[in-house]
């Protein structure tokens, strides 16, 4: 089974890097769809089907990643989707905040494809 991934980051370059890193993992990655901020992500996710995991930046304009996480957890159809935060924010307080809001994982930038693979393994093993 291939995993369909949704990527949220305000940087188009970072979205390409995330997609490339996902394709470099040894897991079967299917479709990768994307959004540039939390508002766009929420709209697209409400209309989407078959997404298995979301990778989201934290610091974004319009709606940041933590607010997106809160909104997803409050939306019946989306609350069980695992959300992995991908961010430069790496202090213990920020990690704990994301996990307490229901994030399924946390990857600090800069990251390697191996780190993404480890997170995906933990989610889907």
């Amino acid at each position: 089974m291939a995993y369909n991934v949704f990527v949220v980051d305000d940087s188009a370059v970072m979205r390409k890097i995330l997609e490339r890193s996902l394709r470099q993992t040894r897991l079967p990655i299917g479709d990768i769809s994307e959004a540039g901020d939390g508002v766009e992500a929420l709209e697209k996710l409400k209309a989407a089907n078959g997404i298995h995991v979301i990778f989201s930046d934290v610091n974004m304009p319009n709606m940041d990643g933590l607010e997106l996480l809160r909104q997803l957890k409050q939306t019946e159809a989306l609350k069980s989707l695992p959300v992995v935060m991908v961010t430069t924010e790496g202090t213990e307080a920020k990690v704990m905040e994301a996990l307490s809001l229901g994030a399924a994982g946390y990857i600090r930038k800069p990251f390697t494809a191996l780190q993404m693979e480890e997170v995906l393994h933990k989610l889907f093993s």
Partner: peptide, 12 residues
């Protein structure tokens, strides 16, 4: 994005 990553890590 490079600035974001470098200075974000400096900040931490």
């Amino acid at each position: 994005e490079l600035g974001n990553m470098v200075l974000g890590n400096v900040k931490d």
